[in-house]
Amino acid sequence: MNKYHNEQGAALVMTLLFITVLILLLLGQFYQVTNTAGQVSTMEKSIEARHMADMGIDYYQQMVASKREILEEVAEDSGFQGVKSAIEELNNTETLNSEMGSGNKSFEIEQITIEQTSDDEITIQFNSKGMASEKEINEESEIIISILRQ
């Protein structure tokens, strides 16, 4: 029996096998990095949209708060219907949406309802829609106005 001790070409096979395994590992890492980058991008858009919705809530709350004295005067003179009309007029005259930066981020206040929850309380419920790139987030909020009668 002759044993073959000719190992010429074994280095080539080992090198090709090593390179194939290395390429498979690198492709796996590349896929993982691209997938993670896509997830991070989606999360950033969601966070930006939520921040824009929160900004819309803060904007509308401050807008109503800045007119508080006027609303209290109207409440004393005309009651709930007068306050409701004043708030509706405020909604029609004030800007209830805003764009930031290059126009791919914005908020919009919509679905505003005004209810009298008790003799001395008025509740304004509204929806703030935040938009960033293609992502939209809707957040509901409310403002409770206490009317102090003298």
Rank of each mutant, 00 (worst) to 15 (best):
M1C: 01
N2R: 02
K3L: 13
H5M: 12
H5C: 12
H5F: 15
N6G: 15
Q8S: 15
Q8P: 07
L16N: 14
L16M: 15
L17P: 03
L17H: 06
F18P: 00
F18S: 08
T20W: 06
V21P: 01
L22S: 05
I23M: 03
I23P: 00
L24C: 13
L25S: 09
G28I: 00
G28C: 02
Q29I: 10
F30R: 01
Y31E: 14
Y31I: 13
Y31H: 14
Y31G: 14
N35R: 07
Q39I: 00
Q39P: 00
S41M: 07
S41K: 02
T42D: 14
T42R: 09
M43P: 00
M43R: 00
K45L: 08
I47A: 15
I47H: 13
I47M: 15
I47S: 15
I47V: 14
E48A: 15
A49W: 04
H51Q: 09
M52E: 15
M52I: 14
A53Q: 01
A53K: 01
D54V: 01
M55V: 07
I57H: 01
Y60A: 05
Q61N: 00
Q61T: 00
M63S: 08
V64P: 06
A65K: 02
K67F: 10
R68L: 13
R68S: 10
R68H: 11
E69W: 07
L71F: 15
E72Y: 12
E73L: 11
E73K: 09
V74P: 08
V74M: 11
E76D: 14
S78E: 09
S78M: 06
G79R: 04
Q81I: 14
Q81D: 15
Q81V: 12
V83K: 05
K84D: 08
S85C: 02
A86H: 03
E88V: 05
E89I: 03
E89K: 04
L90N: 07
L90I: 10
L90R: 06
N92G: 10
T93E: 11
T95E: 13
L96Q: 02
L96R: 03
L96S: 05
N97I: 04
S98Q: 05
E99Q: 13
E99V: 12
M100E: 15
M100P: 08
G101L: 11
N104I: 02
I109T: 04
E110I: 04
Q111S: 12
I112P: 00
T113I: 14
I114N: 03
E115Y: 03
T117Y: 05
S118C: 08
D119K: 02
D120Y: 13
T123H: 13
I124S: 08
Q125G: 12
Q125P: 02
F126N: 06
F126A: 08
F126V: 08
K129H: 05
K129G: 04
M131R: 00
A132T: 01
A132P: 03
S133M: 00
K135W: 03
I137L: 07
N138A: 06
E139C: 01
S141R: 01
E142W: 06
I143T: 05
I144S: 11
I145S: 02
I145F: 07
S146V: 06
I147Y: 06
L148M: 05
L148A: 08
L148H: 07
R149F: 11
R149Q: 11
Q150G: 04
